[in-house]
C-alpha cells in the first residue's frame, strides 16, 4: 500500500499537463472545438499530434498546418482537438482539421 501511494505521489510530481478544458488526475480523454471558419463543407480530415512522456519530454508537431497538410487540405472548415492523459505520465494532444 505504501509503495502504491509512493508511486502515486511520484507520478503526481512528474505529471505533465495536457491542454484541455477538463483534466482528470488519473485519466483524461476529452475532445473540444478549437476554431470554425466561414468555408462551406468538408470531405477531408487531417490529424497531427504531439506526445509528452512523464512530464519531462514532449515531442511532435500538432499544428493546424501539419494536420491540414496531412490530408492535403487547402480550405479549412473547422478544427477540433483531442487531449488524452494517462495519470499525467503519458499525454497525447491531437489536432483534427476538417476541410477541402
Amino acid at each position: 500500500m505504501k509503495k502504491l501511494l509512493a508511486f502515486a505521489f511520484a507520478a503526481a510530481l512528474c505529471t505533465g499537463c495536457v491542454k484541455s478544458p477538463l483534466i482528470g488526475g488519473a485519466y483524461t480523454d476529452v475532445r473540444d472545438g478549437f476554431a470554425v471558419t466561414g468555408n462551406a463543407g468538408s470531405s477531408k480530415v487531417g490529424t497531427a499530434e504531439a506526445k509528452g512522456y512523464v512530464g519531462l519530454v514532449a515531442l511532435g508537431d500538432a499544428s493546424i498546418q501539419a494536420a491540414a497538410r496531412d490530408a492535403g487540405i487547402t480550405r479549412i472548415h473547422h478544427v477540433d482537438y483531442q487531449a488524452k492523459s494517462y495519470v499525467g505520465v503519458y499525454t497525447i494532444y491531437t489536432v483534427i482539421v476538417y476541410g477541402e
Binding site: L5, G25, A26, Y27, D29, R31, K84, Y98
Partner: peptide
Amino acid sequence: WAAVLLVAASAARAQNIRGRYVSRAQ
C-alpha cells in the same frame, strides 16, 4: 487511487472505438 485507476481503465475499455475515429454530421 486503485479505485480511480480501475474506473479509468474500465472507461477506457468501454470507449475502445471512441478514441479511434471522429465523425462529423454535415
